[in-house]
Every structure is written in C-alpha cells, then in structure tokens.
C-alpha cells in the first residue's frame, strides 16, 4: 500500500538477496540435505530412551545446553553472512543474536524432524519427546515438538527457510536496539525477498501469514525456555555456573 514504508528494491536486487541468504544458510545449516538423507532414520530403542530418562536432571540439562550451543554457533555464522548484518553496530548484532539465535535453532529444527514418528535428530539418532523427560519440562518439550511439526507441514524449500530464518533474526522490534531503523530496513528487504521467493515458487497466499504466526510462537517458546532455565538455575546454581557452555550462559543470562 501507499503507507508501506518498504524500501524500493529492484527484482534483480531481491534475486541477489535470495541468493546470498540461501548460500549463507546452506553453508551454516549444520546438516546438509544430502547428509540428512543419508542419516539413518533410526529411532532410539526403548532401553536407550530409558537410559536418557534415568540420567540425573542436571546431566540431561547439561547435554541439551551443549547441543543447543553447538546449533547456535552455526546460527551466529549464518548471521555474519547475512548482507548488512556486520554493518550494524556491535550492540545491535549482540541484541539480535541474544534474542533471535534460539528462535532460528527452533526454525531450523524442522530440517531434522520426522513428523511421522514425531522425533528429532538428537545425539546420533531420532528422539521422541519421552527422551527429554528427565529435563522436567514436558510442557515446553511438547510445544517445541508441536512447533517443529507445524513448520514441517509448511514444506518450506531451503530458500524459503533461509529467508524466514533471516527475517526472524533481523527482528527490528527487539528491546535495546540502538539503530532500530537500520535493522528495520534490513528486515523489510528480507521480507520482500521472502515474498518474492514464495511468489516465484507459486506458494499459496496463506503461507506468509502462517509464517507470521510462527514469529509469536517462537517468542513464546524462547521465553518459556528462559523461565525453565531460571527455575533450574535456582535449584542447581553451581551446575549452571561450572558445567554449562559459556556461550549458553552469555546468551541466556545464566
């Protein structure tokens, strides 16, 4: 509309942006499609599930913190390769990563999620929600699985997933941004590129609005993760302090 403050961007520019962001995504996505196809779709056996369940709560938390941190390191690399991200001031780079890196991990989770068996690739095999019982966060785990399942049902291409991840990361409404306008411009361009690619892929009109709904679902998942971490830390402060990855502690204020 006329009130739309979106920057004027040529189709060639949009195509270029799609290319850059897709390339960044593929270079930093942790598992390539080919690797995923070759990965055995083996689920954990009952005795293995029980072995995860019988781990002490703190050991399971530590294991998940390590896995999340590994995935986040790839997201940081993705961010660095997004056109314009490294031109933002350092404060804003940090703000965007602190708020958005786990959200992108949840978005990327649909690549390693099997809807049929409701399981996710974790620690070498496919794990259902019961594997994570020892964390003591059944409601959060079940919401994360539901989110992954609903992302899978959109059947996004890698291009679409790359642009949606960049869109999430470049959220201009995060608190404490110093150059909000700069971030807004980048996010608007990314949204135009996402619309462009959805149109080109002849996706139905509803996909973009479905993706917009996912943004609020992601925020809710992340704030619930923070709540669960605070509750865990209140009981096991020393475990968090001495055994959790330093990057995880920096990101989630542990």
């Amino acid at each position: 509309s006329n009130r739309d403050p979106s920057p004027t961007v040529s189709l060639a520019e949009l195509d270029h942006l799609v290319q850059i962001i897709s390339k960044s995504h593929l270079e930093t996505c942790q598992y390539l499609r080919e690797e995923l196809q070759q990965m055995s779709r083996q689920n954990f056996q009952q005795d293995e599930v029980e072995s995860y369940q019988s781990k002490p709560r703190e050991a399971m938390w530590q294991l998940c913190a390590v896995k999340i941190t590994e995935a986040i390191q790839y997201v940081v690399e993705f961010a660095k390769r997004i056109d314009g991200f490294m031109d933002l001031c350092q404060n804003d780079q940090i703000v965007l990563l602190k708020a958005g890196s786990l959200e992108v991990v949840f978005v990327r989770m649909c690549r390693v999620f099997d809807s049929q068996s409701n399981s996710v690739y974790f620690d070498g095999k496919f794990a259902g929600p019961d594997v994570f019982k020892g964390l003591g966060c059944d409601d959060l785990i079940s919401s994360v699985f539901d989110f992954a399942k609903s992302m899978c049902s959109l059947h996004l291409t890698e291009d679409e997933l790359a642009l949606f991840s960049a869109f999430v990361l470049l959220s201009a409404d995060r608190s404490w941004l110093q150059e909000k306008l700069q971030v807004e411009k980048l996010q608007q361009k990314t949204q135009l590129a996402l619309q462009h690619v959805l149109q080109k892929n002849q996706r139905e009109h509803g996909v973009l609005s479905k993706l917009r709904c996912k943004v609020s679902a992601l925020r809710s998942l992340c704030s619930r993760h923070t709540e669960k971490l605070s509750a865990f830390r209140a009981v096991y402060p020393d475990i968090v302090q001495t055994h959790f990855p330093p990057l995880y502690k920096e990101l989630f204020g542990a």
Binding site: Q30, E77, E250
Partner: peptide, 20 residues
C-alpha cells in the same frame, strides 16, 4: 563487552562452520 565476550569473539572471528 565483558558480559558478551564469547559472542564478540565469534562475531570477530573469521571462522567457517568447518572449524566450529
């Protein structure tokens, strides 16, 4: 800066995912 030492390092490093 001290509070986000590792993030700063990661942002400044020219690492590739292979090195991660």
């Amino acid at each position: 800066k001290e509070k986000h030492k590792i993030l700063h390092q990661l942002l400044q490093n020219s690492t590739s995912p292979v090195d991660l």
